[in-house]
Amino acid sequence: MPEEELVELKFRLYDGSDIGPFRYSPTSTVSMLKERIFAEWPKDKKIIPKAANDIKLINAGKILENNKTVGQCRVPFGELPKGVITMHVVVQPSLAKAKSGRFYSQIQSKLCDYLLLF
């Protein structure tokens, strides 16, 4: 039985720094990647996720779903040489902050509408 080929991934944070690279099996799930990123997150960053679920991974412009495998998320690169794949990491704000932010956006929008009347 042939040995499965590992995929080398690194994760680019909001400030341009990286976590990794690490090697993963193509059967590893996005959820597993997020757990590893959460465990390896540098403690000196201004933005720190509170849980692995606060992390969103983006590859080739698409947000990856937790239940997808690394093999399913790989973009076919044809005959390009194999190398490290960079995935971008976004920390999603907590639900409470997101709700309050939407609330203030709605107020600002209503205020602008009101001012346009005058």
Rank of each mutant, 00 (worst) to 15 (best):
F77E: 13
N67W: 02
H88Q: 14
S109T: 05
K97N: 15
N66W: 01
A98T: 15
F103M: 07
N67Y: 04
G16V: 14
G78P: 11
S94Q: 03
P2A: 04
L33S: 08
F38I: 06
G101W: 04
K56H: 02
K82Y: 08
E65I: 05
C112H: 03
L13E: 03
I107T: 11
A96E: 15
T27V: 13
L64S: 00
S94W: 00
G101R: 13
R74G: 14
W41K: 05
D15Y: 12
V91L: 03
K43D: 09
I19W: 14
A60G: 00
K50L: 09
E8K: 13
L115N: 01
I47W: 02
A60I: 00
K68N: 00
W41R: 05
K10H: 10
G71Q: 07
G101E: 08
H88V: 06
A96K: 10
F11S: 04
S31D: 09
G83R: 10
I48E: 01
E40H: 07
V90E: 10
L111C: 06
W41H: 06
V7E: 05
F11M: 09
P93H: 01
Y104D: 06
A39N: 12
M32S: 14
K110V: 04
L115P: 01
A51C: 07
T29V: 11
C73Y: 04
S31L: 14
